[in-house]
Write a protein that binds this DNA or RNA. Structure first.
Length: 198
DNA sequence: TCATTAAAGTTAT
DNA sequence: ATAACTTTAATGA
């Protein structure tokens, strides 16, 4: 979901700047504003009982932050933390709802974006229930390059660190590293300057 | 087999 | 320089 910045400003949006590592919202808080990243990178995460991080999503320029939660009128089920210095535009919930009423095109955008988010969740659920770590990693990498051509020419760079991959699929970095090397030896990916290409 | 721990090497800021 | 990330190795569940 990306609402034109001018529209948001006209509707009374404000700007929030945050530095790397800053918490934008936390699990359990009530959402008051629609938020959209103008520039930057934000992760949505949560922690399990013994503090192990689970990354739910990494969002970038133009992405909205957990819009389904505002619409559902619940409490945030995850934290949002800036991964880079970021500029975020915020619009109070009531104003967002007003916008959606006056601009029905936005409703369709919202619908589309929620459908995509739902698809992503379905994928993650299926992929993360796979036991074999190699297959889990393969699944994630394959999902990331879903809009690229199906034949792998190793032209798509995975924009994740190994630690991030591990925290998305619930493995340790070491296991991710070992299996990525196996996948490389099987010619299913390429490593160049520590970056993974599929 | 994978997680954990520790230690060291490499890259980015 | 210092932090962040990657890698290897040993050990244990």
């Amino acid at each position: 979901m990306e609402i034109d910045e001018k529209i948001l400003r006209r509707a009374g949006a404000s700007i929030l700047r945050c530095n790397k590592g800053e918490i934008i919202f936390m699990e359990g808080e009530t959402p008051h504003c629609y938020m959209q990243i103008i520039r930057g990178q934000v992760k949505l995460n949560s922690y399990d009982h013994d503090g192990k991080e689970f990354i739910q999503n990494i969002l970038e320029d133009g992405d909205s932050l957990a819009e389904s939660i505002i619409i559902a009128s619940t409490v945030y089920p995850m934290n949002a933390i800036a991964l880079k210095q970021s500029t975020i535009i915020k619009l109070p919930k009531e104003r967002l709802l007003g916008l959606l009423e006056t601009k029905p095109e936005l409703l369709m955008d919202l619908c589309n974006s929620m459908a995509n988010r739902l698809n992503q969740k379905i994928f993650m659920l299926q992929n993360n229930s796979i036991k074999c770590p190699k297959e889990k990693i393969k699944g994630l990498l394959n999902y990331m390059r879903r809009f690229k051509s199906s034949n792998s020419d190793f032209s798509f760079e995975i924009p994740l660190t190994r630690q991030q991959i591990a925290n998305i699929i619930g493995l340790t970095v070491e296991t991710v590293i070992r299996n990525i090397k196996i996948l490389e030896s099987e010619n299913l990916l390429m490593i160049k300057n520590r970056k993974i290409f599929v």
